[in-house]
Design a protein around this nucleic acid. Structure first.
Lengths: 117, 117
DNA sequence: TATGTAGATAGATGTCCGTCGATTTGGAAC
DNA sequence: GTTCCAAATCGACGGACATCTATCTACATA
């Protein structure tokens, strides 16, 4: 006949007791997380986040030459940030003559936005 | 008396015509953007994003020892990622004996979430 | 054809990041 | 006290990142 003893923490562990409920992570989430992390990483720079903010607030397309004076960085550096945003699928551009116009791709941020809610 | 001539692009530019509507960026947004970029940067790694996902789905607190086997990284690396999330103000931890329990700070992601919507 | 101009690319540099193995810290058990 | 254990920290290494200057590419003007 068994006695209702208080078990020591070590005995509890040995008996299979856990620190908390077991945690599993569904594989389905992994590539989902990968895509969202890519977007988050692109937004993880103050200048890029402000760029998206400006482009979004000007619902239309904004010329690069209007963006350059907004920040204290060189034109090539801004071009580099715009490329990062383009590579992440957040913005796209359109050329008209000498000028290039950038805009936020509709719903590009929706996946991340939905996850955060 | 002035004639209604078609101006060349260069003449237009010389006359002050712009490629698009002038764009200004309010200073108020800058520190706002800085804080959000910090959060986005912390989420900009697949493992950290999955960590937040797991912690959030387990509304309670999750023990580190349950998190380690979920990812193919060493325990010190996981600890490093948890520190990054803590530094960004996204998660916090609580120690109980040998074990450490992590949880998502309520509303830590709200600012970014609101901006994305 | 030659010149000017907007934007992208190339190359260099210093810093930050993700990862690891080894060690340290602080409780708990014997 | 000594041993065991979970988690954090340390030190190192390779790769990625933000930034710059200099150059290149298209296109438009003359």
């Amino acid at each position: 006949m068994s006695v209702d003893l208080e078990l020591s923490p070590k005995q509890k562990r040995a008996a299979g007791e856990r620190c908390c409920e077991p945690v599993v992570y569904p594989d389905v989430q992994r590539d989902h997380a990968l895509r969202m992390a890519e977007v988050a990483k692109a937004l993880g720079d103050p200048i890029r986040l402000q760029l998206v903010d400006v482009l979004h607030k000007h619902a239309g397309k904004v010329c690069v030459c209007e963006l350059v004076p907004l920040f204290d960085i060189s034109q090539p550096t801004l071009s580099h940030h715009l490329k990062k945003l383009r590579d992440a699928g957040i913005v796209d551009s359109e050329r008209q003559g000498l000028w290039a116009y950038y805009y936020v791709i509709p719903d590009a941020l929706e996946e991340l936005s939905a996850w955060l809610s």
